[in-house]
Amino acid sequence: MTDPRGLTGQHTVPANGRDLSDPHELQRDIKETRERLGETVDLLSEKLDPRKQAAQHKQQLVIAGSAALVAIIALVVWRRRSS
């Protein structure tokens, strides 16, 4: 039976077939897990960085801001003409 961590039975042999009772295999598994975790943290940090998000959405923000400005100007002109 496999648990969510990928371990089977006595939690000594993960689903990938490594024997974690061997200290070298255990160290290698820990090293690989740390590397994957580090990559995941880097990706999450990049996704959550407000500066990078703003840069990625800059064009959309400029278009939305321009549309809002045009709408405000049109409203002001319309109100002046209807008065």
Rank of each mutant, 00 (worst) to 15 (best):
M1D: 10
T2H: 13
D3A: 07
P4Q: 11
P4D: 05
R5N: 14
G6W: 07
G6D: 08
L7A: 05
L7Y: 05
G9E: 11
G9W: 05
Q10A: 11
Q10D: 14
H11G: 09
H11C: 10
T12H: 04
T12G: 05
T12L: 08
T12K: 03
V13I: 13
V13H: 06
V13S: 02
V13L: 08
V13R: 04
P14V: 04
P14E: 03
P14D: 09
A15F: 02
N16H: 02
N16F: 03
G17I: 00
R18D: 09
R18M: 09
D19G: 01
D19N: 07
D19Q: 03
L20A: 01
L20G: 02
S21E: 07
D22M: 00
D22S: 03
P23A: 01
P23R: 00
P23G: 01
L26N: 02
Q27A: 15
R28Q: 14
I30Q: 11
I30E: 13
E32G: 08
E32L: 11
T33F: 04
R34P: 01
R34T: 10
L37W: 14
T40I: 12
T40L: 15
T40N: 13
D42L: 06
L43A: 10
L43V: 06
L44F: 04
S45W: 04
S45L: 10
K47S: 13
K47I: 08
L48R: 04
D49I: 02
P50T: 00
P50F: 01
R51Q: 13
R51L: 12
R51G: 09
R51N: 11
K52P: 00
Q53P: 00
Q53M: 14
A54Y: 08
H57Q: 13
K58V: 07
K58C: 05
K58S: 09
Q59L: 08
Q60H: 09
L61K: 11
L61C: 09
L61N: 13
L61D: 15
I63E: 15
A64Q: 13
A64C: 07
G65R: 06
G65K: 04
S66R: 10
A67E: 15
A67V: 14
L69D: 05
L69V: 08
L69N: 06
L69P: 00
L69G: 03
V70G: 00
V70R: 05
V70P: 01
V70Y: 05
I72A: 14
I72F: 08
I72C: 11
A74F: 03
L75M: 10
L75V: 09
L75W: 07
V76P: 00
V76E: 03
V76K: 06
V76R: 08
V77Q: 10
V77M: 12
W78R: 03
R79Q: 15
S82F: 07
S82D: 12
S82H: 13
